Simulated assay, not measured.
Amino acid sequence: MALSRSRRNDSGFNYWPGFVDALSTLVLAVVFLLSVFLVVQFFLSQEVTGKDKALERLNAQIAQLSSLLSLERLGKTTLDDQIAQLRAGLTSAEAERDRVKSLYDGLASAGANASSRATELGKALDSEKQISARALAQVEVLNQQISALRRQLAALEEALDASEKRDKESQTKISDLGQRLNVALAQRVQELSRYRSEFFGRLRTILGERPDIRIVGDRFVFQSEIFFESGQAVLLPEGDAELDKLATALVDLSKQIPVEIPWVLRVDGHTDVRPISSPQFKSNWELSSARAIAVVQYLISRGVSPQRLVAAGFAEFQPLDTANTDEAYRRNRRIELKLTER
């Protein structure tokens, strides 16, 4: 009975040594994987730390560049664009850094990609450094241009000061000349007023006291009926006689007034408000102007210098009496003489 049980035990298979070997192999594999994980984690943390330091240095350079650019921001729009690009690159680099950190967190599943991402990040940082160097070079060029502009501005300010000084001197001279001219003009006006009074006084004496000839203000007024028929601009014989007296007075006056006084006798033609339309005259403008010209031409034929005569037509637009009566119409139809300056 005991012999048969011993034989059954010798014929059974022992599994324990194989299980121990398999378990040892599994433990070694786990230890190996943990070792690899720790080594990769160490190198990746070193890589990320180095990139963080590089980003900090880049941030410091960008801050320094921004402080320099703020001094000349108004005239450096192109440089501002480059700084904006640089900041965009920094944002992109920071995004890459964040992505690398996320890769670090998920190292077990993406360890191989971490190295390539770190290489791309290094290239991006190198590119940003080159952009920063170009930006600094452009800042230096802009500083030189600003210095040149400031020198030009200083030269312009000096020229402006000199010009203002000359302008002040000129204004002083002009003011002095203006005062002297005003005095001279006032003297000439006074002289012309004196000659006008004498001339009107002499005309009053020559022409006598007539109701159709009167003085209104600074004008000698003749009613049109003295010289012209209604609607006509041909001088009447009795009008010629009156103009002969006027011409004689003008010739004598021209001998008395100094040559330097630029005087003229203005002959103004006026009509009443009633419109005219004839084959010869289409409007009161034409009639009043033709009458004034007829008087001037007659005075020239009697020896008055044409340089001392002016003919003007006012039609019905300068009435003496605005009433719609025959008497008002008669008063407004007139020839006025005014001794004035040229």
Rank of each mutant, 00 (worst) to 15 (best):
S230A: 08
A241L: 11
V259A: 14
A249G: 00
E225G: 07
A241N: 11
T205P: 00
G217E: 10
D268M: 10
F222D: 09
R214N: 05
T248N: 09
R210P: 01
R188Q: 06
I174G: 01
L203D: 04
L246F: 09
F220N: 01
P275H: 13
A159Q: 12
G208D: 11
L192H: 10
I213Q: 06
I174A: 10
F200G: 03
T172Q: 15
F227N: 07
L185H: 03
F281A: 01
A155V: 15
E238G: 08
I261L: 11
E191N: 00
R274K: 11
V216H: 01
F222I: 13
R219S: 13
T205Q: 05
L265V: 12
L185C: 04
T248S: 11
E238V: 06
L181T: 03
L142F: 11
S224R: 07
I146A: 09
V221D: 01
A155P: 14
Q223S: 09
V216W: 03
R274E: 08
P262S: 06
A247L: 10
A249L: 04
D240F: 14
Q152G: 07
F228W: 04
I226V: 13
E229N: 12
F222G: 02
E260N: 15
G208P: 04
V264K: 03
L207V: 02
L246D: 05
P237Q: 09
R194V: 06
S147C: 14
E158K: 08
A148W: 15
F227C: 05
E198P: 12
L235A: 07
K165I: 00
R196D: 13
W263I: 00
I174E: 02
L192S: 08
G269K: 02
V251P: 00
R194L: 07
Y195P: 12
L160A: 11
L250A: 05
D252N: 03
Q171V: 09
I213M: 02
R194K: 05
D212Q: 14
L142M: 15
G239M: 12
L181Y: 03
Q187I: 11
E198Y: 05
Q171W: 01
D176C: 08
G239C: 09
H270K: 09
E158R: 09
S147Y: 08
K255T: 14
D176K: 06
Q145D: 07
Q256M: 15
Q144W: 11
E157H: 06
R202H: 12
Q144A: 10
L153C: 09
S278V: 03
R151I: 14
Q187M: 13
Q152C: 01
R196S: 15
A241P: 05
P279A: 13
